[in-house]
Amino acid sequence: MIEVLSSTALATVQDLGRFGALGWGVSHSGAMDRLALTAGNILLGNDENLAAIEIPIFPFRIRFHHSCDIVLTGADHLAWLDDVALWPWTIIHVQAGQALTIERGGPGRWQASRVYLCVAGGIDVPLALGSRSTQLRGQFGGHCGRTLQTGDRLPVGVPADAFRPAGMGIVPPALAMPLTVGDIPAIRVLRAAEYDAFTDQSCADFWAQNWKITSQSDRYGYRLAGPMIEPKYPLELRSHGIVPGVIQVPHGGQPIIQMRDAQPSGGYPKIGTVIDADLWRLGQAPIGSSVRFIEVTWAEAVTALQDVADWLEEVRRMVALGRTVQKGAVDDQ
């Protein structure tokens, strides 16, 4: 059992998402940075789809009422267990009664926004339509279908029978797979159905200019600020299915990227779609920061997905190796 001590807004319980319910109007939800959640679960020997707490606003404080093992993944922020500083992406043993504090980190190599608190055994809230992810719009899933509040007590599942040596960690994916244009973080994009309906100048600007992530950005979508994106003629589409990553351009001319809580359908014209392989990067881009878009082909987009799968496979291999080596070291004593 863990207890939320701070009333910071917008922290939610998330697993990898809820699939198969789009036809009821229920979006995928799930972790904004799926690599961080998956890697945290691998380190802990969890099923890779177990739920964690996604934390976007700091400081964040919780108390552990039972001993357990945790990993902090995602953004490299500052964290303490009572008064002991913690390494991110690393297994930590926690004693019953200890308090965890996470604060926003200073300037670093990688600017990111969301921390995942992964626990051995996972955050054991009930499944709703097959997932533990919080469905904010529908007010179900996660913890009571809402963001976490001070005093909330969250159940932890039974940990897998795995050796979890304290201090074993991995290199974050943003450092293992960097992607920038100049010094601006970059995101790869495929053209979408209405790309050719935008003016040549708008299309050129879309690829060549920086896009600022405005303060009106959240798990539903990122509203961008940059040059005006204008269609050659007014477009009024019939409502159709959309997915996280779709970049819509409403009549106001400023793009909106659909994120994990985005509605599963829409009708604004689409200039592009962020490829699935880069959604985790975007999920970590802080409000106020800028991104650049890189155009890719279908083949490049599918290959990028394979690169992500390869990175995760390497994490699984290294963690398994680390367990064997360290277990051996313990057994020798």
Partner: peptide, 14 residues
């Protein structure tokens, strides 16, 4: 119908 791709996640038939 017109078929277009929604990233690598889905396709759309209109």
């Amino acid at each position: 119908p017109v078929v277009s791709m929604l990233g690598t996640t889905a396709l759309l038939l209109e």
